[in-house]
Deep mutational scan, measured.
Amino acid sequence: MTFKLIINGKTLKGETTTEAVDAATAEKVFKQYFNDNGIDGEWTYDDATKTFTITE
């Protein structure tokens, strides 16, 4: 399955996707992406659209 990440950061904005077997696996991938890029904020997940959103 394809999961999308929408980034609404102070310095970084955009979208990316990842292929994962489930939302929990995608969450781990995206959290690592947050850490690697110094993004910290509030994030949500919409199961209907398989979209994670992080807002700094």
Rank of each mutant, 00 (worst) to 15 (best):
16 T>Q: 13
21 V>A: 12
25 T>N: 08
29 V>I: 13
18 T>R: 04
21 V>L: 13
18 T>F: 14
50 K>G: 03
52 F>I: 02
22 D>F: 02
19 E>H: 14
22 D>V: 01
39 I>L: 13
7 I>M: 08
8 N>V: 12
44 T>G: 06
55 T>Y: 07
40 D>H: 14
6 I>T: 04
43 W>Q: 01
31 K>Q: 10
41 G>Y: 14
33 Y>N: 04
27 E>M: 12
2 T>C: 11
41 G>D: 03
2 T>Y: 07
33 Y>G: 03
39 I>Q: 04
50 K>S: 05
6 I>F: 04
4 K>V: 11
30 F>T: 00
11 T>R: 03
19 E>W: 15
1 M>Y: 14
49 T>S: 09
15 E>V: 05
1 M>I: 14
33 Y>S: 04
44 T>F: 10
42 E>T: 12
13 K>S: 13
38 G>P: 13
55 T>P: 01
31 K>H: 06
50 K>T: 04
47 D>K: 08
43 W>D: 00
48 A>C: 06
14 G>Y: 15
13 K>Q: 10
42 E>D: 12
10 K>G: 10
51 T>Y: 01
11 T>M: 08
36 D>R: 09
45 Y>A: 00
42 E>Q: 09
17 T>D: 04
37 N>P: 06
33 Y>P: 02
20 A>R: 02
54 I>N: 01
34 F>C: 15
9 G>W: 12
8 N>F: 09
25 T>P: 00
49 T>K: 05
24 A>T: 08
18 T>Q: 04
6 I>P: 00
40 D>N: 12
31 K>P: 01
35 N>T: 14
36 D>C: 07
21 V>H: 11
23 A>K: 13
13 K>P: 07
8 N>P: 03
43 W>G: 00
46 D>I: 03
8 N>M: 12
40 D>Q: 15
21 V>C: 08
25 T>H: 14
33 Y>L: 12
28 K>Y: 08
54 I>E: 00
12 L>F: 15
54 I>S: 03
48 A>W: 08
21 V>P: 14
22 D>P: 01
45 Y>N: 00
6 I>C: 05
6 I>K: 05
10 K>P: 12
50 K>A: 05
7 I>D: 01
28 K>L: 12
37 N>C: 14
38 G>I: 13
51 T>A: 02
7 I>R: 02
8 N>H: 10
32 Q>I: 08
